[in-house]
């Protein structure tokens, strides 16, 4: 199993909380709620083959992923957002979604351990 420390870089999250533990916990809780929800929103848009909805889901994920600090996910998502903003939806973009969801699942799976570690 991948260690949470390899998946998360919480420097940004910490910088935004300014050392406030309550806010940090609130953000981590929100992350636990928002990541799976946004993942599902993305997959629903993919099922509907609604490229604009995929773009919106990807755009929303951009902010969420920034809090995880996971470069790989952020990078894949940036490519997906850029492609779907231009209306592109093909094999390449579908592969991006698959890869993105795989990384998000890893993050979601590791989040509880991370929260405990932080606590």
């Amino acid at each position: 199993m991948t260690h949470p420390g390899d998946l998360f870089d919480l420097a940004y999250l910490h910088s935004m909380t300014g050392g406030d533990p309550d806010m940090r916990d609130t953000l981590l809780d929100l992350l636990r709620e928002e990541l799976p929800r946004e993942r599902n929103t993305l997959l629903k848009a993919v099922d509907d083959e609604d490229v604009h909805a995929i773009f919106q889901a990807s755009h929303s994920l951009k902010s969420t992923l920034a809090y995880t600090g996971n470069r790989q996910a952020m990078d894949i998502n940036t490519r997906l957002e850029s492609a779907t903003r231009e209306g592109r939806w093909g094999g390449e973009e579908q592969a991006l979604v698959a890869e993105l969801v795989r990384v998000i699942d890893q993050l979601v799976q590791a989040l509880p351990a991370l929260v405990q570690g932080v606590e």
């Binding site: 935004m16 909380t17 406030d20 806010m23 609130t26 953000l27 992350l31 928002e34 929303s60 809090y67």
Partner: peptide, 16 residues
């Protein structure tokens, strides 16, 4: 802002 985490961060950051 429509993003919940961004809303929270913006609010908390400014209020702090």
């Amino acid at each position: 802002e429509d993003h919940k985490m961004n809303q929270l961060v913006a609010r908390k950051t400014l209020e702090r």
